[in-house]
């Protein structure tokens, strides 16, 4: 186990360096003036441009630029806005909203997706199963963007069950955006859990457990379900990336003042440095959480540890 964790930690470092280098190279090494591109149509005096070139070390060779950028990143410096405010300042202010949104979405997808998957596997080809099959097919196929806008109109506007926009009503205002963010993953979790639970319920060890007289509930919960959760955990790790990307769309649509909403705003206001800073943070969060999921995975499945 210790060896496995150590190996994963060692693999983690090049991935962080590689991923941040790709972002860095795409923004700062493309032909043309990166400051011009980051600022968009904004008129800019030579003095400001000179300061920015200095700030991003654009007169150094690419590798040195990247080194200085990484060094700043490690110290929590994610760049500054065009008005001189540190991006880390914005991050500290906006992050709680995004954390709440992602947590709400996570709870919704785990609980509803999990229950739907278990019920449809236990009552195979019954009414619940067909319902889950049809609704997951539809949910997976409708883009989050469209679903969120329609959900906003139907549940926020016509039915009036949830606030249409903003985070003014505490946790309650996160339920609708959270559900929309969770929709695709919820459907995928339900399907994944159904498939793997059905497979495990046919396994020999389940028959053994039943034969030795354990109750149905105990057989399902303690034996079959535990093993069926392994693919779901793997999925959750990989899914975090699309969830972080989804916060940009969802917070934009629902006007939530979080990190994704800030990226959405920064795109409109052409504040390139804010976009780069926040996306870099998202990427770091994503790789770190993937590492944690990988380690968790090894606890769940002993087969992983020994290869």
């Amino acid at each position: 186990m210790k060896g496995y964790v150590l190996r994963r930690l060692l693999q983690f470092i090049p991935v962080v360096i590689g991923a941040t280098f790709i972002i860095f190279a795409l923004v700062f090494a493309i032909p043309g003036d990166p400051i011009r591109a980051l600022a968009g149509d904004r008129p800019m005096s030579d003095a400001v441009r000179e300061t920015l070139r200095n700030q991003y070390n654009l007169d150094d060779p690419l590798l040195i630029q990247y080194g200085k950028y990484m060094l700043a990143l490690v110290q929590g410096d994610f760049g500054t806005t065009f008005t001189g405010r540190p991006v880390s300042d914005i991050i500290a202010q906006r992050a709680p909203v995004s954390v709440r949104l992602v947590l709400t979405a996570f709870v919704i997808q785990a609980v509803i997706g999990g229950i739907a998957g278990i019920l449809s596997a236990l009552r195979r080809q019954g009414f619940v199963d067909s319902l889950v099959q049809v609704s997951t097919t539809v949910l997976v196929a409708i883009p989050t963007l469209v679903l969120a806008m329609i959900g906003q109109v139907v549940f926020g506007l016509h039915l009036g069950w949830f606030p249409i926009a903003g985070a003014g009503e505490g946790w309650y205002s996160y339920i609708l955006p959270g559900a929309m963010l969770a929709s695709t993953s919820m459907a995928l979790i339900a399907r994944l859990l159904r498939t793997s639970l059905l497979e495990n319920l046919r396994a020999d060890y389940v028959r053994t457990a039943t034969a030795k007289g354990l109750s149905r509930r105990r057989v399902v919960v303690r034996h079959a379900l535990r093993n069926s959760l392994i693919p779901v955990v793997t999925f959750l790790g990989a899914d975090l990336g699309s969830m972080l990307g989804g916060t940009v769309i969802i917070e934009g649509i629902f006007n939530l003042p979080g990190l994704g909403g800030e990226v959405f705003r920064a795109i409109g206001a052409q504040e390139g440095t804010v976009i780069v800073g926040i996306v870099t943070l998202f990427v770091l969060v994503f790789v770190s959480l993937s590492l944690i999921v990988d380690i968790l995975y090894a606890y769940l499945d002993p087969r992983i540890r020994y290869d």
Partner: peptide, 24 residues
């Protein structure tokens, strides 16, 4: 595979947002 890992660490939508936002 290692190069694929690096790119894979950039979530699809986020990477595209950054790259496209600097293309005029």
């Amino acid at each position: 595979s290692r190069f694929a890992d690096f790119v894979f660490a950039l979530p699809f939508l986020l990477g595209a947002i950054v790259f496209l936002s600097v293309i005029e």
